[in-house]
């Protein structure tokens, strides 16, 4: 009984805080800074450099939003959150948007009362093994010892996958990513399982990355995306359409370099609409006509952001795979801006 009352109180407080901050975008513009929740450190997604400047996929997305809303890509407070604090930080209004490699799931969207703005990275759980084992497929992993981070969805996915394929395994639970690396390299387990992007960046940090392979099977769906509080549709629209503007920009060939030239006017009506020459998309969003132009100019289009943080030029060197635009066989499909 008491617990119910306490929960109701928490829910009521959440609700009121949601109502009180109904004008998130007005709050941000009054404050002059976007409060963006990121992870305290994940290679390629968000990490500070030696001078304290944050870099990564999730970080660049927040800079694009700041450019669109505040006309300054650097008007962002990056607030490191942990797996435990991220949702409360968003629900309580401490951050305006959570851009933190968060998987879009039913319960988070519906039960936790958030709105996902889309998917900025399609990830999936995979396996990494030393080449010397001679394993070519996850189906050969029967009886393997598997290193796994505790308390994550990967643990459940692993159990389900092995049960489905009638295989046995021995889990070696480890607290965090750095410890898993040490354990795996020391031979404490045959296989390391985690999200594909995590495996790739972990492998890139090894002394001899070529001695390890990532198996082709992807056993779970992990669509990662930014999210905002439910109930403020205008702000959710800004988040959703900024992401779509970045993806569309890649489809249309608009880059950070040529955006200035193209915004003077081009033959392609799609480009003109996106960059504010035709129609009044920005005004419908409550912004000005050049919002998307600034968002693209900030850190480039989706493809440029990917290339700079995860792509071939980085040590992580992830292939585009599912994250290529749909015309290249991927899942990135910019919704029509018109």
């Amino acid at each position: 009984m008491k617990l119910t009352i306490a929960l109701a109180a928490v829910a009521a407080a959440t609700l009121t805080s949601g109502i009180a901050t109904a004008g998130t975008m007005a709050d941000i513009q009054a404050r002059g800074k976007l409060n963006c929740g990121v992870t305290g450190g994940q290679a390629g997604f968000s990490a500070p450099d030696a001078s304290g400047v944050w870099h990564g996929m999730d970080v660049d997305y927040c800079r694009a939003i700041a450019a669109a809303v505040l006309k300054d890509p650097n008007a962002v407070n990056f607030i490191p959150t942990t797996g435990q604090t991220r949702f409360t930080a968003l629900a309580s209004g401490e951050i305006d948007i959570l851009s933190r490699t968060t998987t879009w799931t039913f319960s988070r969207d519906v039960d936790l009362k958030f709105t996902f703005a889309g998917v900025n990275y399609y990830d999936g759980q995979a396996f990494m093994v030393p080449k010397s084992l001679g394993i070519k497929s996850a189906k050969d992993l029967d009886g393997a010892t598997v290193c796994i981070q505790t308390g994550t969805t990967t643990e459940l996915n692993l159990a389900e996958y092995f049960r489905k394929n009638n295989m046995k395994y021995e889990p070696v639970p480890v607290e965090n990513n750095a410890d898993v690396q040490q354990k795996y390299l020391a031979g404490g387990c045959d296989v390391y399982t985690s999200d594909g992007s995590d495996l790739a960046s972990t492998r890139s940090s090894f002394k001899n990355p070529e001695h390890h392979i990532i198996l082709p099977e992807v056993i779970s769906k992990e669509p990662l995306g930014p999210l905002v509080r439910q109930g403020d549709d205008q702000w959710a629209d800004v988040a959703r359409w900024t992401l779509n503007a970045l993806i569309s920009a890649e489809e249309l060939g608009i880059t950070a370099e040529n955006v200035e030239k193209l915004s003077a006017g081009s033959d392609n009506p799609d480009v003109n609409r996106l960059l504010g020459k035709e129609d009044k998309l920005g005004e419908m969003l409550g912004l000005d006509a050049e919002w998307a132009k600034r968002a693209i100019a900030a850190e480039g289009n989706y493809g440029e952001i990917f290339a700079r943080n995860l792509g071939d030029k980085t040590p992580i060197a992830l292939p585009r795979g599912l994250n290529a635009v749909w015309t290249d066989g991927g899942l990135m499909y910019g919704l029509p801006l018109r």
Partner: peptide, 23 residues
């Protein structure tokens, strides 16, 4: 570090997440 404040241990994790020092 568990509530997202950047104490030395949390900073160590952040530094390791940078591609220069990962590993």
């Amino acid at each position: 570090m568990f509530i997202g404040l950047l104490d030395p241990i949390a900073l160590a994790a952040a530094i390791r997440a940078n591609t220069d020092w990962q590993g």
